[in-house]
């Protein structure tokens, strides 16, 4: 494969959640006729789907752009994966679907718990079962909000 075989100024589309087209295969390019076909269409940001995204990016050349669409929690995880591949903010466009779903990182056991709705301020940690207070503090690297023991100061 010669260096010119991938034209530099191209855009990689990755979609998560309901936006993920069931029929779209990987690395098929995008606009064909009227049908939009993303390069990567997956359900959730899981270790496996993020690895597929990284594989695509690790083959890419500078000049590439990344568009990530889907629920916030998933695309923020995808952004963290892309940053690990050396992508910078200027090269990424995030299309958020705000559905209130959040990932919560437990400060005490380091497990990450999925929280279905943003209105809840507390959630049981999937790792250590502590009831966590969910803060607005957000880590771009972990793509998660900070959770810490909710009622720890109250007398036992």
């Amino acid at each position: 494969m010669g260096p010119m075989s991938t034209p530099p100024s191209r855009t990689i589309y990755a979609t998560f959640g309901a936006e993920a087209h069931s029929g779209a295969g990987p690395e098929t390019g995008h606009q064909s006729g009227t049908e939009f076909r993303p390069d990567l269409a997956v359900g959730q940001a899981s270790p496996d789907s993020l690895k597929r995204l990284k594989d695509v990016l690790n083959q890419a050349y500078v000049g590439v752009r990344l568009v990530i669409a889907g629920p916030s929690a998933d695309i923020l995880a995808a952004r963290a994966a892309a940053a690990e591949c050396g992508m910078v903010e200027e090269e990424m466009t995030l299309l958020h679907r705000v559905d209130g779903h959040r990932r919560v990182f437990c400060a005490h056991c380091r497990a990450t718990t999925s929280m279905p709705e943003a209105s809840a301020h507390e959630i049981g940690c999937s790792g250590c079962a502590t009831v966590l207070s969910v803060s607005e503090h957000f880590s771009r690297r972990l793509a998660a909000h900070l959770g810490y023991a909710a009622h720890a100061e109250e007398a036992a």
Partner: peptide
């Protein structure tokens, strides 16, 4: 310019 991996 057209053959640099991401991160360059």
């Amino acid at each position: 310019l057209s053959s640099q991996r991401l991160g360059t």
